[in-house]
Amino acid sequence: MPLPKLFSQLQQLVASPSVSSYSDKWDMPNRPVIELLATWLDELGFQTEIMEVPGGGGRKCNLIATLGTGPGGLVLAGHTDTVPYDDFQWQSDPFTLTEKDNRWFGLGATDMKGFFPIAIEAARAFADTPLKQPLIILATADEESSMSGAHALAELGHPKARYAVIGEPTGLVPIRMHKGIMMEKVSIEGLAGHSSNPALGNNALESMHQVMSELMNYRRHLQQRYHNPGFTIPGPTLNLGCIHGGDNPNRICGHCELQFDLRAIPGMDNDELRQEIDTRLQAIATDTGVKISRETLFGGVPAYEEPANSALVQAAERLTGNSASSVAFATEAPFIQSLGMETIVMGPGHIDQAHQPNEYIPTEQIKPAVETLKGLIRQFCL
């Protein structure tokens, strides 16, 4: 079967829904997208390996496609899933790639199914060229939810290469560092009772007030302790995201729950942060007599940094004409980097188009993206 052209490839990828979500209502397999990519890469002469992600029931898969052999090489990586969508807010069918005003509209067009046809187009130029080092195209599952695909690769220690580009939408600006993220839930069990006599219960909402105050104090402490001028917001952030508690004005609140996120900068460790938070929560529990527990909502992403003088950063800067920068959003970069590769985040499109209706990739960035990847392949595979 002949390899489809770039637009047709993205058209087919967008038409194959692959939402990942913690909600069973939304969550979908990504296997059809993986199998589609494998078919095209087989056609180009890549050796393809479809790996089922543990716990995914065969519905969730990663793809490792390799052209050439050797101990080094270049990985072009991306995730195959998308976030959920509000179809009533779209001006076109989110699963039909639509061209308008020099933009290609579709769910995942920029975040980040659009990277795969661009990577394949770049690879096509070298399909008949003997490579000194391998070119690997890597496609993962569930980046938008649990990052289970990236976790599985990190645990497996595979693939092995020397350099990796993760094609998240950055406007073709090389990104060499980003903040981490952890999402936590604090639950307080107090004692309900009649509000006319506070002694009849132990108010979980009042204890949560202390917890929130302590978390905000902790935030100030972290921002005084950690600072990186390479980020637009130079310190870590902690956001109190949502709270639920109680059931009636005339009852002492017996249960309260708070969810928050914390975005660390390089040099901070998520597990150490959790331990420090637990120590502070335990002191409040002892003081108030309520039961306080903390639960991690998902495994989190470590903060990530690639040295400014790395060969990959310098090559990407030279090819794009853009200086390396940072972003506040998290990616799979730290997991790929943990495999021993110099790693950057760089791809076409802009993050402000992601996760919203009428997502699009600007056509003006497609050819420059292809040429940039070709330049990286020449440098690191030839």
Results as ranks from 00 to 15, higher is better:
R294L: 15
P249V: 11
A119K: 08
L240E: 10
A316Y: 05
G235S: 14
S213P: 00
P229V: 09
P54S: 10
D247Y: 06
V313D: 04
L74H: 05
P368N: 04
G245P: 01
S195I: 03
A324L: 05
I34R: 05
M183W: 13
Q282K: 13
F260M: 08
E371N: 14
I233S: 14
A311H: 12
I252G: 06
A127D: 03
F88T: 14
Q282I: 07
Q379D: 09
D142A: 11
S8H: 13
A77L: 04
K374W: 00
E143R: 02
A324C: 05
G57T: 11
N62W: 01
N358S: 05
P302D: 08
T232K: 15
I233N: 15
V345E: 04
L262Y: 04
A125D: 06
I137R: 00
L258R: 08
F115H: 08
Q356Y: 00
R31F: 02
I233F: 14
R31T: 13
E364T: 10
A127H: 03
F231N: 12
S148P: 00
M208V: 06
L131D: 06
G171M: 11
E305Q: 15
A65T: 09
H244F: 15
T96Q: 13
I64Q: 09
G180M: 06
I336N: 03
A141L: 08
P159F: 06
P307I: 08
A192M: 14
K132C: 10
S338G: 09
G56D: 04
Q91Y: 00
P84K: 10
A122M: 08
R378Q: 15
P348G: 07
T39R: 13
S325Y: 02
E364F: 09
W40R: 14
R124A: 14
G201V: 03
S18W: 03
E143N: 06
I233C: 09
A164R: 03
E35M: 05
R176I: 11
R103W: 05
A119C: 12
D247V: 11
R59H: 14
R225H: 13
C256V: 03
A125M: 07
F46S: 05
I118T: 03
P236Y: 06
I120Q: 11
G289F: 06
I188H: 12
D93G: 01
V211Y: 13
C256A: 15
G45A: 08
T232E: 14
S326W: 01
T69V: 10
F380M: 06
G58S: 05
L200Y: 03
